[in-house]
Design a protein around this nucleic acid. Structure first.
Lengths: 158, 158
DNA sequence: AGTGTTGGTCAACCTGGTTGTCCAAGTCAA
DNA sequence: TTGACTTGGACAACCAGGTTGACCAACACT
């Protein structure tokens, strides 16, 4: 007796994501990070989780290295990271997160958790936890996990 | 005892959405609609739900009318809709969905429902229905609903 | 030493949007 | 009926976040 269609489900997922992320971006702007985009946050998290170079980051985010290079350029421009040629391999450019970058993910983590906490109040802790478990099943085959390569996998790695 | 962070929740939502939609796009391609993009489907659905002109569509999708015009141009190019000047108001260009367009949303609806059915098998019908109800709460303030204006609302209408 | 792999870069392009500007056509009130 | 406002559409330029494809220098591995 499900009244909802598959297409509706897609819009529910997208809408929930956008509400969550829009809120975080809006709040980040008021806390001193007006130029932070969601992709910047994900990239910095991936770098913090171990991506040391552009190629590294590309693999972890499952995007092309060209796209990763552009993202890194944007991060450098905004002062969130710096790059430095690897002394042991002059092709590589190692990425370092600046204090400003650390500040960004610290704030953004806090805001994400605040919004999640509000959702928890609405739904109940157990229910939200269950929802997350269920969603995890849907992404289970292709984990979006910045701590590991292939977060948007299913696409072959580049 | 929630082990998950708010940022993880965002990635779960996005990942679930992408898995669902990617599957639909992939399957649509094999069923004779290799050029169909998700935005095309949403636009045609909105048109079918009552959007008769570009400005109309823009309001329903909560995008600029320029963006709506571009989408319509893409739909015309692919043969999913045709446009025709409104005899009663020569500024307006009424949009008509072609048989090809009807075919697209018929197939896409079926595929969406097939994928949803697979998820239902995994989760159980009651659980999936509950998940949808919960997600609906998150988008409740700003309903993504192609049957009504402002599906991505929160942004002011244009 | 030669071959293959890897890291990075340039250039062009795509999608799905955005602003800003403008105008012709419709609406409505005085 | 005329003048003021609103609406529908279109032009141009731009942006974010990707993509392909071609390349080259540097490293790694026989």
């Amino acid at each position: 007796m499900s009244s909802r269609s598959g297409a509706d489900l897609a819009l529910l997922l997208l809408g929930s994501y956008r509400n969550l992320v829009d809120e975080v971006v809006r709040e980040l702007a008021t806390r001193g990070y007006p130029d932070a985009r969601p992709s910047h946050e994900y990239a910095i998290r991936a770098i913090r989780a171990g991506a040391e170079s552009a190629s590294d980051l590309a693999r972890r985010l499952a995007i092309t290295k060209q796209a990763a290079a552009k993202t890194i350029a944007a991060l450098v421009e905004r002062g969130y990271v710096t790059t430095e040629t690897d002394p042991a391999d002059i092709r590589r450019k190692n990425i370092w997160i600046t204090d400003h970058g650390i500040g960004l993910i610290t704030e953004s983590t806090a805001i994400f958790d605040e919004v999640r906490a509000r959702w928890e109040v609405r739904l109940g802790a157990a229910e939200l936890a269950e929802l997350e478990t269920q969603l995890a099943q849907f992404v289970g085959d292709s984990p979006i996990n910045l701590d590991a390569p292939g977060w948007a996998a299913g696409q072959e790695l580049r």
